[in-house]
Design a protein around this nucleic acid. Structure first.
Lengths: 165, 165
DNA sequence: AAGTGCTTCTTGAAAGTTGAACTAGATAGT
DNA sequence: ACTATCTAGTTCAACTTTCAAGAAGCACTT
């Protein structure tokens, strides 16, 4: 990284966009956190972990892989899975091929919670986003978020920008 | 709220958009949190609080107002300000007109930290968003986020959707 | 088989967040 | 004035997240 002469501040429009982004994302996160805490007894990220597991081959996944998919640190995942295990929604099993490894497995109870709370959750997401945006905007949002996500991947041979000279 | 017959699940495209949204937003938040923790010694939300204060009339604001602007709960703000006070970047003062009230005031030290770390922060935001998106996309993002934010305001005579019959 | 280094996952303490309960001051109605 | 109600802000306990450190297995080299 080079430290430039003077920083390029945000334009007025960019400032507005950034502010709207911050407000929308924090409001939505809070909203979903509360919704799921109330209806499913867990915060949004924990719920997302269950969703990931439910979609995985044997409803199970290696810890590191799960952490990567959910974009959280392994440490955070460890704590989260411990909590979900205590709630009976996930259990752990040793990985047979790699003795260091652990598989997180969605239990029947976990699946049940998921099925029970999914409709409400989808409704909340719809209400916040998809029912408010035009189809074109949905498409645009998808493209934009994909660009951002790609640029932020910790791994991907990132580092360089679209070459501005 | 009515509980419908069967839930309207997300289409394939919507699922993709939602997933991209979750990934992009969590990655960006983590990224900025780390960047600011490293460069300014505080998480992103605390930094945002200082920014809000720096833009306020006397570099000061009533607690509740600040909480509203920053979209966080009063409780969270109390803790945050306590911490920022301990770091010497904010101080509190009783509100003269309302003896219950407190004003959070940005100190010179706070202003200084802000000025010192702003360039790096703006660069990070730019790198993550504005340098990656086309001008049209920036505009689109702004519109989309404003719609979302508006729909999620806890106060605003919200409640009803764009009338889908 | 010993050594080095890498990966997997966990742990513990410190920091941050949440939701409910609480104090104190303002407001409105009677 | 009296009471009820509301608002501003804080505090406590329970929970979540982070960061640094650590235990254990793998893998490659010599």
């Amino acid at each position: 990284m080079e430290s430039d002469g003077q920083p390029r501040w945000l334009s007025t429009e960019e400032q507005g966009v950034w502010q709207a982004y911050l407000q929308a994302t924090t409001l939505l996160e809070d909203h979903l956190d509360r919704q799921l805490q109330r209806d499913a007894g867990m915060p949004h990220i924990y719920y997302a972990l269950l969703v990931h597991l439910s979609r995985a081959p044997h409803r199970q996944m290696r810890m590191t892989q799960l952490a990567k998919n959910a974009k959280i640190t392994r440490s955070r995942l460890s704590h989260a899975i411990a909590r979900l295990e205590k709630s009976g929604w996930v259990r752990r099993e040793d990985c047979p091929s790699d003795k260091r490894g652990q598989n997180a497995i969605l239990t029947d109870g976990g699946q049940e919670v998921l099925m029970r709370s999914a409709p409400g959750h989808v409704a909340a997401v719809r209400l916040a986003i998809f029912d408010r945006l035009s189809p074109e905007q949905v498409t645009q949002l998808g493209e934009i978020m994909r660009v951002m996500a790609k640029g932020l991947q910790p791994d991907g041979s990132d580092a360089d920008l679209p070459w501005r000279r």
